[in-house]
Amino acid sequence: MQYQFQFNSVLAESGFIMQGILLTIYLSIGSIILGSIIAILFSALRANGPRWVGGLVDVYVELLRNTPFLVQLFIIFFGLPSIGIRLTADQAALLAMTLNLAAYSTEIIRAGVDSIHRSQIEAGLSLAMTKRQIFQHVIIVPAIAKVWPALSSQFVLMLLASSICSFISVQELSGVTAIIEQRTFRSFESYIVATLLYLVLALTLKVGLLGLGRLIFPRVSGLSRVQVKGEAA
C-alpha cells in the first residue's frame, strides 16, 4: 500500500465546500424547525382531535416511517411534476426532509405525551381548563422534555440523511464533495474531508441541542423525580 494522500487539490475548493456546508445546515435547521412544528400540531390532533383525524395522522406517520427516504425524495422531485407541482431540487429536499422528520418526531412526541401521568390531566380539568388548554399548557412541554434526547438524536440522523439529497443534484455537502471528486480525481481525500465535516456538524448539532434542551426545559431532571414521587404516593 503506497497511496500518497494529496489534500491540496481538494482543499483548494474550500469555498465550494463551504457552500455545501451552508446548504446542509440550512436544510437541517429548516427541516428541524418545520418538522417539529408539524409534529407538535399532529400530536395535538392525535390527542384531542376527532378520531378520524387521529387516524389520518397515524396513517401518515406509518407511511413515512416505513418507506425509504430516497423514495420519498424521488416521489417529491420526480413524481410531483407529473401533477403540475414543480419544485427546485433544494425545495424538494427541504420538503422531503421536513415531512420525513415530522413523521418520526410525531411518533417520538407521542411517547412523551403518553408518559404524562393521568393525574396531571385531572389537575387541569379540575381547574376548568379545556382539553386544548391542557395539552398546550400542561402536557406538551413536559412531554417534549421527557423525549428530548430521543428527539435530538432523530434531528442528528436527519442531518446525516440530508446527504441523500445529493441524488437529486442538491449541492449540499455530499453533493459538492461528489463534484470535487470528479474534478480532482481525489476520491479518498474528498470523502475524508466530507466525513470530518459531517462529524463536526453532527457533534455541533448534538451539543447545541443539549444546550437548547437545558435552556427550554430547565426542569428536565426534576421532572423524572417528581414523577417517581407522584407514583409512589
Binding site: 393525574s119 389537575a123 417528581v226 407522584g230 404516593a233
Partner: peptide, 13 residues
Amino acid sequence: VGIVFQSYNLFPH
C-alpha cells in the same frame, strides 16, 4: 369547585 389531590399534581415545568 376546587379540588386538592393526594398526589398534589402541581405542574412540574
